[in-house]
Design a protein around this nucleic acid. Structure first.
Lengths: 94, 94
DNA sequence: TTAATATATCGATATATATAGAAATATAAA
DNA sequence: TTTATATTTCTATATATATCGATATATTAA
């Protein structure tokens, strides 16, 4: 539990959340069951390639997961298990 | 609550926690009521000026506070209120 | 098949950040 | 006072990261 690996996993998660645009993505997803890239871009103003990088980082550390692919649309949703394990969701995300 | 300022405050806190050495400082302080710089340096191996920067960053966002000065020794402790508001302390810090 | 659209990856770059040595500050002891 | 010690601040630098345009991939429609 408190080994080096979990330490770095924890760091990775907080690093992912410690950037304004990524935290906005997470907050946006608390208001929607799932969203695809195009929908996220409608709410938050940055370029597609930038969004893709942020989504990858959030997915790599387990904060988000790809929930569904419908045609070319990739839908993402929050990974509530991860969030509850690391974040005080009741004060930060509610 | 969910305004731009609190968004950036939240980012600041997770950014502070999202670095291996700083997270180590926080974890170390969960095991001690308070510690001064010299004591922290005995546990974690980095230079005094580096430690000072990390402590400043952690204190600026409210994760740590300067609890006491005794001579030239500056004692720091965790700010439990901040931690509880942002971190799932029972899984991350216990 | 070709064309159109959505997303991801690549490569470059500008900005941010962690680190460290040196200097500054502060306190206490000699 | 001078000296020693603890911590902070200053300055430089190397590394990490966010962003973006271009390209690549994947899927669907025509």
């Amino acid at each position: 539990m408190n080994n080096e690996q979990s330490h770095l996993e924890t760091v990775k998660i907080y690093k992912a959340l410690g950037e304004p645009n990524r935290l906005s993505i997470v907050k946006l997803l608390t208001k929607h069951k799932e969203l695809c890239c195009t929908e996220i871009e409608e709410h938050l103003d940055f370029k597609g390639s930038t969004l893709s990088h942020h989504l990858k980082q959030l997915a790599d550390c387990g904060v988000l997961k790809l929930s569904r692919k419908e045609g070319t649309f990739h839908y993402y949703q929050l990974n509530q298990d991860t969030l509850k394990r690391y974040v005080a969701v009741e004060t930060v995300l509610d």
